[in-house]
Amino acid sequence: MVMLSVVRVLVRKQAGVTYDQAKARGIIEQSIRKEAAAKNRQADLINIAGQSSRI
């Protein structure tokens, strides 16, 4: 488990990104709310959440 954490830190450093879980959740929530206004099927919203989490 420690090795995985080290790898994550190194990859983020190499890519020049930071870990901000609260910000990521906020982005996903905004995306889901925006799409929910246009789509009302649960499967659609689940797909949107999955796509948004890859940001």
Rank of each mutant, 00 (worst) to 15 (best):
M1G: 10
M1L: 06
M1V: 04
M1K: 05
V2F: 03
V2N: 07
V2K: 09
V2T: 08
L4A: 08
L4G: 00
L4R: 10
L4H: 04
L4K: 08
L4V: 06
S5Q: 07
S5C: 02
V6P: 00
V6L: 09
V7G: 00
V7Q: 03
R8F: 03
V9N: 07
V9L: 08
V9Y: 09
V9K: 14
V9S: 09
L10R: 12
L10V: 04
L10C: 05
L10E: 10
V11N: 08
R12G: 10
R12F: 08
R12L: 04
R12S: 08
R12A: 09
K13C: 02
K13W: 07
K13G: 03
Q14N: 05
A15W: 04
A15K: 09
A15Q: 06
A15I: 06
G16T: 01
G16K: 02
G16Q: 02
G16D: 03
G16A: 01
V17G: 00
V17I: 10
V17W: 00
V17L: 04
V17D: 00
V17N: 00
T18E: 06
T18W: 01
T18I: 02
Y19C: 02
Y19R: 13
Y19Q: 04
Y19A: 04
Y19T: 02
D20T: 02
Q21G: 02
A22Y: 05
A22C: 02
A22R: 11
A22Q: 11
A22T: 06
K23H: 05
K23M: 05
K23S: 04
A24L: 14
A24D: 13
R25L: 12
R25W: 06
R25P: 00
R25Q: 13
R25S: 12
R25Y: 09
G26T: 04
G26E: 09
I27D: 07
I27W: 04
I27N: 03
I27V: 12
I28L: 05
I28K: 02
E29T: 11
E29A: 12
E29Y: 03
E29L: 11
Q30E: 14
Q30H: 11
S31M: 10
S31W: 01
S31Y: 01
S31A: 13
S31F: 00
S31E: 13
I32D: 02
I32V: 15
I32A: 05
I32P: 01
I32Y: 02
R33T: 12
R33E: 15
R33D: 15
K34I: 10
E35M: 14
E35R: 13
A36K: 15
A36T: 11
A36Y: 09
A36G: 12
A37G: 13
A37E: 15
A38I: 11
A38V: 13
A38E: 14
K39H: 15
K39A: 08
K39P: 01
K39L: 11
N40Y: 09
N40E: 12
N40H: 14
N40F: 10
R41I: 07
R41K: 14
Q42C: 08
Q42K: 15
Q42S: 13
A43L: 13
A43T: 11
D44P: 03
L45A: 05
I46Y: 12
I46A: 11
N47S: 14
I48E: 10
I48G: 02
I48R: 11
I48S: 03
A49S: 15
A49N: 07
A49C: 15
G50L: 07
G50I: 06
Q51I: 12
Q51T: 11
S52D: 06
S53D: 08
S53R: 10
R54M: 15
I55Q: 13
I55D: 14
I55P: 01
I55F: 09
